[in-house]
Design a protein around this nucleic acid. Structure first.
Lengths: 200, 200
DNA sequence: CGAATAGTGTCTCTTAGACAATATTTA
DNA sequence: TAAATATTGTCTAAGAGACACTATTCG
């Protein structure tokens, strides 16, 4: 009999956890949310009848009061000694939320999120790389901004995600083909009012 | 007590499997290796005390006689109904081997590898995307070719991976900065002998 | 008006892509 | 010599990046 067709009960099974890097942009920096008072990302064990994304949503709802997130998978961490309590695989996830919606999490700049429990340093690093890749080609794929945005708003987000200053004129020309002008302008600030755009 | 700190025994655990797309290039096409006589990728259940990469290596050694591969993770498939035998997560992997080293696997062009068991169609698709991304910027990151190669060899590989013809001159100029000339030429074929290069 | 921000013109440099020409081998 | 392949020259078009200039608002 082919091994893959043997009954499932023949095998001891690992515990499977999810751990999630909740990312957001505030000011000019990329932040990650930690469990209040602890140097670790929010996580939970996968329950029977639940998907991985479901476990992520449950853990974020419980630990941070966050609802309606869309988790993306990063990597499975499987080092045999990664958890002193036993055999635990962790499926790392990333979730991106607007700055107002970080719930009870403690925000720390990703660059300062080191010395975390388990292999959570590596998860933060992978999550930062993941969001950087996402924002190379698209204006705001994770909806960090509301539906109407100016090029300045957008550039601030990209600068925080990218971790470097961007030239306003080059950035504008790169993003314009992917934006829809609303015909409106944002008034009230000093300076020439900026056009408002929608994501295309 | 924080849920993540409860004893592990409180939770029912899933079975965890690995399933691997073994990719290679033969002629002008990208192939994937299937279990002989079955419409599925080689796979196995994760055993206690074993890493995921270890399980991949074990399954490929057992089912195909393949040794010394370096598996890369793609994605965890976790649909609740993906396996009729019960609760099974599958961690999809990809492995790239030279055309001579495909062991006992049955090679099928990736474009023709549809209608496979479980969610293996999706794994093949992701594996093909993965290798395409790997070969965009590097001459031969997965060592599909031997240590000494001509630009023609390299272009054939890229054409197979990319699934499209490439211009010899443009390709040459794109790859040259990433290659080390050996000073040797390959003789014996018709036409001007081509320079031999090494990966830099 | 002056400061601040938005937006455009334009120049340079690099690169991709294509076509053509030259170079060197085998049969 | 003819056919085949390697390699280089060169032109064009597109795009990134930088700098300077103009436009429009608030205080």
């Amino acid at each position: 009999m082919d091994p893959i067709d043997r009954p499932l009960t023949d095998y001891p099974r690992p515990s499977v956890a999810v751990d999630t890097a909740v990312l957001t942009v505030r000011g000019a920096e990329l932040y990650v949310g930690l469990v209040p008072g602890r140097p670790r990302l929010p996580g939970a064990f996968l329950h029977e009848g639940e998907t991985l994304a479901g476990a992520v949503r449950r853990s974020l709802a419980q630990k941070a009061g966050l609802e309606g997130v869309a988790p993306a998978q990063l990597h499975v961490f499987d080092a045999l000694d990664r958890d002193s309590r036993g055999w635990v695989l962790s499926v790392a996830h990333v979730v991106v939320v607007p700055a107002e919606s970080t719930g009870a999490l403690e925000l720390v700049p990703t660059s300062a999120a080191t010395g975390l429990d388990f292999d959570h340093d590596a998860i933060v690093e992978q999550a930062a790389r993941w969001i950087r890749d996402r924002y190379v080609d698209h204006p705001d794929p994770e909806h960090l901004l509301g539906p109407e945005l100016t090029l300045r708003d957008l550039r601030r987000v990209h600068e925080a995600v990218h971790g470097a200053a961007l030239q306003p004129d080059t950035f504008r020309r790169a993003m314009l083909p992917r934006l829809e002008p609303t015909g409106q302008r944002r008034r009230g600030d000093v300076g020439k009012p900026a056009q408002l755009f929608r994501r295309r």
